[in-house]
Structure formats: structure tokens, C-alpha cells
Design a protein around this nucleic acid. Structure first.
Ligand SMILES: [Mn+2]
Ligand SMILES: [Mn+2]
Ligand SMILES: [Mn+2]
Ligand SMILES: [Mn+2]
Lengths: 220, 220
DNA sequence: AATCATTTTTAGATTTGCCTAAATTTAGAT
DNA sequence: ATCTAAATTTAGGCAAATCTAAAAATGATT
């Protein structure tokens, strides 16, 4: 229950992100790359986090979150996604603008604030990018992780989220006019490159397999 | 335009607060006391802030904000008071609960966020404690700084703010049931100790000169 | 089994922010 | 004018977080 520094919180978040749900062993270099820092710096922090019993760590072997570390990481993720929802829903920011602000807001301490924010937003289950928001017990809402590239011709789908949240991808689909909740009809799939011709907002156009693979959908 | 550290921001805020509107010279010890730190630590920071041209500072003489430092300090104060307004108006916190959270939120960087927050709140001019919120040019809204202890018998007033924002005082007047915007009728003033008998929400009670001196009012 | 490229850790510095204890300066009181 | 107490600065150190360069471990490849 000790209060973590902003830096420690960011390391836990990075380990959580890289390790994924499987809680795989995470390499020092991977953490360094994600946090734009050096492997030597990461080693220092891993020793410290192990000392605080937040992670498992054996020199040269890798690291994974222990339960307490995972709880912390999910708590930060919860705040991040709630704040992103606030920024888009209440302050009318675009979904491609909010990540950097949320990186700061996720470190605001008060859990009471977090819970009231969630209530104010109507207990949202997904953030503006369609990513699931864990509840205060750390449980994620369920969702099928089907992407548009799996859709068959002559099916109608709804856009539920983005797999790649990078500014580049968000800007690209913003240019196409695609937003969460939009309906898309798959007209045909090209054998050669798996690209799709879709109908969206009364327009027909082609979308690459790569772009389609980064759009989560629900089949209608 | 260099980005300041959280610590640097808090020093500028402290100097601004102690110096007041008059931009008086501020003593090292006063800053140390306000920030719960040691005079030696303050000296270190003053040298650094002078080096960044944010303050005037001469050893043994004291310090005052230069224009750029003052602009920064007012900007932080603006964010502090806007966030307090958000917490009370939108998240239904009590006015005595919000200061600590605002101490963290005031350091969130984005000015775009600040301006959208202000718009979302309806461009408030006063925070939940009745303190004026500077606009984005740093200009404070005008208000008469008359306190209840100046009121004459048989006058009606409205509570506009609190001079002392300490938790102790806020809890005390919360116990009396006094809120911003409340109407109070002054029935009589006791010669001996300058205490007042007031009528408030259909109740008559006595209020000390000290408590009255910490309530800003508008005469009706 | 020995070699070599990659990964990771260790060693040694740097910066920021903070501390205690010892000077030093200032200003008030004789 | 001198003395003294308070305020302030200087000196020296410490912890957190970072870096570069060197050393060590790992594991894949002859
Ligand atoms: Mn994000
Ligand atoms: Mn962060
Ligand atoms: Mn406050
Ligand atoms: Mn602060």
C-alpha cells in the first residue's frame, strides 16, 4: 500500500503492457524501448521494484508482475482510460488528441476521485479507442476481439475499437471518416492481398488488410 | 517558455502567495515554512529560479517574482481553481475536500485542456471557496473584499467567499450550515467582543468577530 | 566444446531536490 | 558602537532517476 513514484508507476504499466494478459516474462530491453530509456536504467528500477515485492525478477532471466504490481498497473490503466473518456465525452477532444494528457492524469492519486469520475461518465466500459476499462476490482468487461480482416463478404459490422492506437493509425481512419459505432458493410474481399471493398456512410472504398486488422468489429 | 518541474512550479506559487498582489520582497524563511521545507533548500531553489530569470533575488535581501514568473504562478492558480470548481460542481465533492486533489491537478500541462475545462464549467469567475479565477490572460475578476465583521446591524448580506480556506474553518462553517450564496441578516453587534447575532436559514445564532472576519460578503 | 553476437548487468557519473551543521550577514538592543 | 539573536547562506552529503562505457552472462553457431 506504499505510495509509488510516477516513475515506478510507469514501469509497472510498461511491464503489464508488454507481458500481456498471459503474464509472460518480460525482457529488460523491451521495457527500455517502451519507456525510451536505457537497459541499465531499467535494471536499476527492476531491482527496486523487486525489493518492494511488486515484481518477480531474476538477473538475466526477465521479470513479471506479482499480484500487487498487477493490481497497481490495472488501477493506472483504469484511470488512464476514464480520463480519456472524460476528455472526449465532456471536453470534446478528438480521440487522437487525448493520450498524452491521460498519461499525466493517470497519476492523480485519489481513488475517490477516480470512482466519482467513473460515475460522472456513466460507468463507461470502453474508452474512446474502444479499449476496455477495468472496473474498480480490476475486472475487464468482455468483448469479442474480432477484427475487420476476418469479416466475410456481404456482412454488416459495427466498429467497436482500434487495435493500434497510434496517432498515425488514428489519423488515417479519421481521414476515412471512421468513428466508433460506425456501421460498415463488407462488399468483397480481394484474394490477392486480402484487401476489402467496404461501404461506409454511403461511400464505397477499398481498405487494406493491415488497416482492417487493426479495427475491432462486432458482426451485426 | 521552458517547461518547469513540479517543484519549481510550487515555489513560484508560494512566492506569489506570500508576496501578494503588491509583489513585496519575500523572505527565505517564509517560503520554507509554507512549503514545509528548510531554508537551505529554499536558497538552492532561489538561485536556480533566478538563473532561469523567473525571479529577482539578492542574497540576504529576499526575492520577488519577475513578470514571467508571475505569469506562470497565475497560470497554476487558474488551473487549481478551475479544477476545484470541476470537483465540486461536476463530481459533487464538498468544498473542504477538493484542495489536495487540486494541488495535483494544477500541474497538468496542456493549456488546451485548461481552456476547454473552463468552457465546460461555463467560464466560472470564482471557485468553490469564492476565490477569483484569473482568466487566461491572467486578469482577476473584481470583487469587493468586504467581510461580515464590517456589516452594520439590520443589514442583509450574501456570503460570497471565505478568506481563510483552511479545513478547520471550512468544517466550522459547514457545521453552521453556511454555504456560498447564502443570505444572512445581521441582527445586532456586541460592543464588547464585536461578535454578531445573525439570522440565517430561519435560525438566529451568534458568530464571533474572528469567524465573521473570514467571510466575504456582498451587501444586499 | 569453443566462439561470437546479443542481452543484461555493473561501475562510475550527473542532475535534481532535499537534509544537517557550520559559517556568515543583518538588524535590533543595549 | 558593540553585542547578540535571528535570518540566511555555504559546505558537505544523501537518495532517486538517469546516462555512458565496460564487464559479464547467455545462447545460438560453428
Ligand atoms: Mn491512451
Ligand atoms: Mn504515465
Ligand atoms: Mn485550493
Ligand atoms: Mn502543487
Amino acid at each position: 500500500m506504499t505510495k509509488l513514484s510516477l516513475t515506478e508507476e510507469n514501469y509497472l504499466k510498461a511491464i503489464y503492457f508488454i507481458g500481456g494478459t498471459s503474464n509472460q516474462l518480460v525482457n529488460t530491453n523491451a521495457i527500455a524501448e517502451r519507456l525510451n530509456t536505457k537497459a541499465a536504467t531499467v535494471t536499476d528500477m527492476l531491482r527496486k521494484l523487486k525489493q518492494k515485492d511488486l515484481i518477480e525478477y531474476q538477473p538475466y532471466k526477465g521479470t513479471r508482475l506479482k499480484l500487487e504490481g498487477k493490481v497497481k498497473a490495472i488501477g493506472i490503466l483504469r484511470k488512464h482510460r476514464l480520463w480519456e473518456t472524460f476528455l472526449v465525452e465532456k471536453l470534446a477532444f478528438g480521440w487522437e488528441e487525448v493520450h498524452e494528457m491521460a498519461e499525466q492524469l493517470e497519476h492523480i492519486q485519489s481513488t475517490e476521485l477516480t470512482e466519482r469520475l467513473s460515475a460522472f461518465l456513466g460507468f463507461p466500459e470502453f474508452d474512446p479507442h474502444g479499449d476496455p476499462i477495468p472496473n474498480k476490482e480490476g475486472v475487464f468487461p468482455r468483448r469479442d476481439n474480432v477484427t475487420l480482416d476476418r469479416a466475410k463478404p456481404d456482412t454488416a459490422v459495427m466498429v467497436q475499437g482500434v487495435k493500434d492506437s497510434s496517432t498515425e493509425f488514428l489519423n488515417y481512419i479519421a481521414k476515412l471518416g471512421i468513428q466508433l459505432g460506425d456501421h460498415i458493410a463488407v462488399k468483397s474481399v480481394e484474394e490477392f492481398d486480402r484487401s476489402l471493398v467496404v461501404e461506409h456512410k454511403n461511400q464505397q472504398y477499398r481498405i487494406s488488410a493491415l488497416a482492417a486488422a487493426n479495427l475491432y468489429i462486432k458482426e451485426l
